[in-house]
């Protein structure tokens, strides 16, 4: 997924993930409420995201082709790949050097590692 998504597109994507499957007319209404968008604006953005392969609009019903979880997993992988050469320890080291991990954080990470083992 070498495609970039902007903040606005992500907000829109989140809305679809939250409401899917959703009729396109309903989506237009939702966007008018939340973002103050016109009908044409909503369709423009929807078409863009469909072209990027994130969603599909079949007979007026909008559904996702990539789930929210899959999307973020892929995104974080890409990030670690790009910034730390795919090394998770390097990423963790960089992350913890500035930010103190809370006890809760540490326990969560430990349980993840335990699961893998």
């Amino acid at each position: 997924m070498a495609v970039e998504f902007g903040e606005v597109q992500m907000k829109f994507a989140e809305l679809i993930w939250e409401k899917e499957p959703v009729g396109s007319g309903e989506l237009v209404k939702l966007c008018a409420e939340r973002f103050d968008w016109k009908k044409s604006t909503t369709y423009t953005v929807l078409k863009k995201l469909c072209d990027k392969g994130l969603f599909q609009n079949v007979e007026g019903i909008v559904t996702s082709r990539i789930s929210k979880e899959d999307f973020y997993t892929k995104k974080s992988e890409e990030f670690v790949d790009e910034a730390f050469g795919g090394s998770l320890p390097a990423f963790l080291a960089a992350f913890t050097s500035h930010q103190q991990l809370s006890r809760k954080d540490i326990e969560e990470i430990r349980s993840i590692i335990d699961k893998i083992q």
Binding site: G6, E7, V8, K11, R34, F35, D36, W37, T41, T44
Partner: peptide
């Protein structure tokens, strides 16, 4: 700028991708 959303419900600030 048509495709933009309000930044933190501020009335004068919008975020735009393009």
């Amino acid at each position: 700028t048509r495709v933009s959303i309000r930044y933190r419900s501020s009335d004068k600030v919008y975020v735009c991708d393009d």
